[in-house]
Design a protein around this nucleic acid. Structure first.
Lengths: 223, 223
DNA sequence: TATAAATGGTTCACTATTGGATCAGGTAAC
DNA sequence: GTTACCTGATCCAATAGTGAACCATTTATA
């Protein structure tokens, strides 16, 4: 059993909250109790609970206790929590809306340096020998396209999607669906996107990206 | 057994990361532990981890540890925080991508009851006399369309946007831009969207929504 | 009402953990 | 022999956890 640190305790608490613990009265146990339960100092628990407080999961009152804010479906925290539970199929559908648009924006707005960074990521991905490296630079290729879309909100949505894609169900799917042949397909499809970007052809970039995402969806979801 | 060198260890680590190890809290074991686990000197592990760092696979903090950049639970909160700082113009651009799509999905997927709820929100918005009431039911109209899009991820993105729009800069803008004439325009544009939804005309719904959002953007951002 | 208990807020000195940096060797491949 | 790499060791700097004390506010109890 690894040693518990504040961050781990924050994660453990979140998990227990999301499992419906302490829902009857919305009140968490006193910090001193949690400390002895987890076998750590109260200061450590305090830091963990502060993390929950920072992301709006709980509120604290001196003399009264610490209370869950869940139940307010309109909070940022609750929205993000629900997002983690949505299906890969739903996200793929939205990716097919957003990424072609991002590619289109990028073709119009990117600087030469930014496009170079995209090309760089593509090159490394294609040259990479092992699957983990390919995964990483594949993601980086997509990320860099968003980065030159010049729309910060779009960039952050993509960030959210990227984080979610690195969590449970996606992980299994990516592992299952990987093969050398598919890697080659992705490379050539990325090449088409890149060519369109370099030619400043926004419609072409959008179309190439859509084609690519349909391939990815087919591979991941097996349709 | 061949002797392990830094490069081998880097690959081994990447593989373990890509297999989802250390995903719970996004934290790798200390270099000293890895060194003894792989049976090599700490310097060697350090070089291997440096390769991962160069890749961008991990980030290191003195005194804290080495963390995966993907699947890092904090990054979710940070992303949302950054989102709060993005510009209304950027968000409006994305709304023009997502809301027509949501309307299109809704035209196809909504149940009769759900469409009734949309109609209800529209009716109250049109009948409302004061600006806050109108604002509320206007937002509800859009929200209910997303609700019948049958895509949970899309719904949650819209939730995020809605929460952000209830915060500072937006609130001022909405107040400034409100006028009786604009309210009437919005009502008639909503009517067109609603008509298309009821006719199950997904292209029409999408187009009507896009027209509406362009009006909104013009009014809010003064373009 | 007065008092005590419970609970979060704050601070401090101390220790432990962890990555950063460097150096003098050893070893194997060329 | 030269080169490249690993080993083992030491010290540094930044961060985190410990244990304890005390405060401020709220709630329960006598």
């Amino acid at each position: 059993m690894p040693k518990l640190v504040a961050n781990d305790i924050a994660i453990a608490l979140k998990k227990r909250i999301s499992l419906g613990e302490w829902l009857e009265n919305g009140r968490m146990p006193p910090e001193r109790d949690l400390a002895s339960e987890f076998g750590v100092a109260r200061n450590t628990v305090r830091r963990a609970v502060s993390m929950l407080e920072d992301d709006g999961t709980v509120v604290r009152h001196v003399g009264r206790g610490t209370f869950l804010t869940a139940g307010n479906p309109d909070s940022m925290a609750a929205t993000v929590a629900r997002m983690e539970g949505t299906s890969p199929a739903d996200m793929m559908e939205i990716r097919q809306l957003l990424e072609p648009a991002a590619a289109s924006f990028a073709a119009t707005n990117a600087s030469a340096g930014e496009l170079n960074a995209v090309r760089e990521a593509h090159k490394i991905a294609c040259a990479s020998q092992d699957m983990p490296t390919f995964e990483h630079w594949d993601a980086e290729f997509h990320h860099r396209i968003f980065a030159c879309s010049r729309n910060d909100f779009l960039k952050e949505i993509h960030n959210l999607m990227r984080i979610l894609r690195n969590q449970r169900p996606w992980f299994e799917m990516k592992k299952r669906s990987f093969s050398e042949e598919r890697r080659a397909t992705y490379c050539s499809e990325h090449q088409l996107v890149l060519d369109a970007l370099l030619a400043r052809d926004s419609e072409g970039a959008s179309a190439a990206m859509l084609t690519h995402l349909r391939t990815v969806e087919r591979n991941l979801l097996g349709r």
